[in-house]
């Protein structure tokens, strides 16, 4: 029975279902666009995901949400967590970056861990409201593990920025 169900499945269908599951802390961003789905293996009967931050309280909820959504769609797949290679913000898709921006959250500066040295300024982040690069970081830590707090010096709007990892 399980084999028969799997037989009719194809990767694309699974990915379409995954694209409907969102991170509860970013309820407009799908797990696919967040870049946490590492692998869909129909032969292995498994979907592998990588956690974003070690202490992300949403990690377990996301795993559960994925499993539930797959089950609802009649797809009998296990959800497994894979730690390595570690997730990086570089894996957020282009569509994911646009979605973040559309929701007023500055996407992480492309390609890179925030490796700036101790005494250097953090990389500039564009204001999601007016696009100005004249912004400053208020705090490296925000309401959730993935976001920092910034403020725009051109339009004065405070905003959240996705932390580089």
């Amino acid at each position: 029975m399980v084999a028969a169900t799997l037989h009719r499945l194809d990767d694309a269908r699974v990915w379409r279902v995954l694209a409907e599951v969102c991170d509860p802390e970013l309820p407009f961003l799908s797990v696919v666009d967040l870049g946490i789905v590492r692998e869909v293996s129909l032969t292995g009967g498994v979907v592998r995901i990588t956690p974003t931050y070690s202490g992300c309280p949403a990690a377990e909820v996301i795993g559960l949400a994925i499993a539930n959504k797959l089950a609802e769609a009649g797809m009998n797949l296990r959800v497994e967590t894979q730690l390595s290679p570690a997730w990086t913000t570089d894996w957020i898709t282009e569509k994911g970056r646009e979605t973040l921006l559309a929701h007023g959250i500055a996407p992480p500066p492309a390609a890179s861990t925030d490796k700036h040295t101790l005494f250097a300024d953090p990389p500039a982040v564009a204001c999601p409201c007016c696009g100005s690069m004249d912004t400053e970081r208020v705090s490296a830590f925000g309401a959730t593990a993935c976001k920092a707090m910034h403020r725009c010096l051109s339009c004065s709007e405070p905003f959240e920025a996705f932390k580089c990892l």
């Binding site: 956690p51 931050y53 070690s54 730690l83 390595s84 290679p85 570690a86 997730w87 990086t88 861990t113 925030d114 490796k115 101790l118 490296a140 830590f141 932390k163 990892l165």
Partner: peptide, 24 residues
């Protein structure tokens, strides 16, 4: 040890923020 290596790989990026925060 692949488990320790994997946890460290993730952790090292997070602790970089800790170090900088405390230093600042």
């Amino acid at each position: 040890d692949s488990t320790l290596a994997a946890v460290a790989e993730k952790g090292v990026k997070e602790i970089a923020y800790h170090w900088r925060h405390a230093a600042e």
